[in-house]
């Protein structure tokens, strides 16, 4: 049962990702990305990570992608022009992708100490997850939130400076 679901949603995820690249209209690409995000959530659920699955849907599919589609709709972005790409990119690019994927695969296969995640009936409860997050992994967790805070401050600073500049220019 788990295997059937895994194959189904892994296939959906890959199909969405390929469709994302092939579509020429930005809104279709954004919708394919939503398919990818939601099928990833199902894969998390198959690994027993229910909270992660819900967070994936709420944050990525429900908030981040809504902003993506919002921007696409707001700018009314049209169909992308399809260029054939340079010959150099094609001759070097595809072998380079294969090489990088091969290196990543070998590295992942060689590292055994990371612990294994298997498809199972058991579910990691939200309580277990938060206990680990707030005891063992407290420092990385807090550092990540500081990182997000910096990003917010940066965005505010950029937006503010834009405003001030126009005022200063108008003043001159």
């Amino acid at each position: 049962m788990h295997l059937i679901l895994f194959l189904l949603f892994a296939g959906l995820c890959l199909a969405g990702a390929i469709n994302l690249l092939l579509q020429s209209h930005p809104i279709n690409s954004a919708l394919s990305l939503i398919v990818v995000m939601t099928s990833l959530a199902v894969l998390y659920l198959l690994l027993g990570a229910e909270f992660l699955a819900a967070a994936q849907v709420i944050v990525y599919a429900g908030a981040v992608m809504v902003l993506f589609t919002f921007v696409i709709m707001l700018l009314n972005a049209g169909r992308e022009e399809r260029t054939l790409g340079s010959r150099a990119a094609r001759t070097v690019g595809f072998p380079a992708v294969v090489v990088i994927l091969a290196i990543l695969a070998t590295v992942i296969l060689h590292i055994q100490g990371l612990g294994a995640a298997t498809m199972q009936d058991g579910i990691t409860s939200t309580e277990d997850l938060s206990t680990i997050l707030f005891t063992k992994l407290l420092l990385p967790f807090e550092v990540t939130s500081v990182l997000i805070l910096i990003a917010i401050l940066g965005a505010v600073a950029l937006a503010r400076r834009g405003d001030g500049d126009t005022e200063r220019l108008a003043g001159k």
């Binding site: 939601t38 819900a54 967070a55 849907v57 599919a61 939200t126």
Partner: peptide, 21 residues
């Protein structure tokens, strides 16, 4: 479901696409 509340929030947040699209 263990995360029933999150399921409701998640599905409602997907519902936005109906209106947006």
């Amino acid at each position: 479901v263990n995360i029933g509340l999150l399921v409701i929030l998640g599905i409602t947040s997907i519902g936005v696409y109906g209106v947006a699209l």
